[in-house]
């Protein structure tokens, strides 16, 4: 298999107000292969977001390196997009839903013949057909995150990074969004790296899970999820293997 993303001994330390330097990420290494769905699971505040910001090229690591498709990362790579946890702060309030999704296409600067049609197709894909002319603030949180996902897909990334994308929506919406995301992943074949503190979400979605420790973050364990696809909210979650994985990861994290 070809690694599309390689994280090589990435560390990140911050200087505190008192001048002391504190280590947030401690030599994390892992790889993601093309077309995979990979999750990083760890307790809240363990530095997962910081790591994702490093991978997205928004916040350079203190030491170590990142390789996306055999190219060293310095600054945001062009074939990768980050979907933020705070979708309400990330969407453009001055653009309609269609406008927000069109932004993804414009940013690509790929002069498409039918940008409008392409944007509408993506809006339909995330289940927001009929809301094209609405503004982000007219939608619920779950719908807003759907817009953010459609906008990211419009950019046509090979890798989609997602930072707790369903962290601030209600439990039912969360399940719906998980299935929407799986459908998109299966349809488009985009490689997805997701960060979450929800163990069951990670198992439900992923091919592979990296369990991340408390600060300073290290990879505690690599877990291959050999649950059959397509996954199903009832049967997959009722699978004995699902329970086993859940318990194992929980034991690791709570140590």
């Amino acid at each position: 298999m070809v690694a599309i993303l390689e994280v090589k001994k990435v560390s990140k330390s911050y200087r505190q107000l008192d001048g002391e330097s504190t280590l947030a990420i401690d030599e994390i290494s892992f790889r993601v292969e093309k077309g995979e769905f990979v999750s990083l699971v760890g307790p809240s505040g363990c530095g997962k977001t910081t790591l994702l910001m490093c991978i997205a090229g928004l916040n350079p690591p203190s030491t170590g390196g990142l390789v996306v498709k055999d190219v060293e990362v310095h600054g945001p790579p062009s074939n990768l997009v980050l979907v933020f946890q705070e979708f309400n702060k990330s969407l453009f309030a001055w653009r309609s839903i269609l406008g927000n999704v069109l932004f993804g296409l414009e940013a690509r600067e790929k002069r498409s013949q039918d940008a409008q049609g392409e944007a509408r197709r993506l809006i339909k894909l995330v289940g927001l057909e009929g809301f094209e002319r609405h503004y982000p603030w007219e939608l619920s949180g779950g719908m807003q995150q759907r817009v953010a996902i459609a906008r990211a897909l419009a950019y046509g990334p090979e890798i989609l990074l997602m930072d707790e994308p369903f962290g601030s929506v209600d439990a039912l919406t969360r399940l719906e969004l998980e299935d929407t995301l799986l459908k998109i992943w299966e349809d488009l074949g985009t490689t997805i790296l997701l960060v979450t503190h929800d163990i069951e979400e990670a198992i439900y979605l992923s091919d592979r899970i990296y369990v991340v420790s408390r600060r300073p973050s290290r990879i505690l364990q690599t877990i291959d999820v050999d649950l059959s696809r397509p996954r199903h909210q009832i049967t997959t979650r009722a699978d004995a293997k699902f329970m086993e994985l859940r318990n194992e990861i929980y034991r690791q994290i709570s140590q």
Partner: peptide, 29 residues
Amino acid sequence: IEPTLIDTGRTFGLGRWKILKEIILPAAM
């Protein structure tokens, strides 16, 4: 301006001037 908006522009590969025009100007409107 919300820093996440600027980061959004950056992850979509926008350069400094594009971010000024496409994100900072409308957000500061």
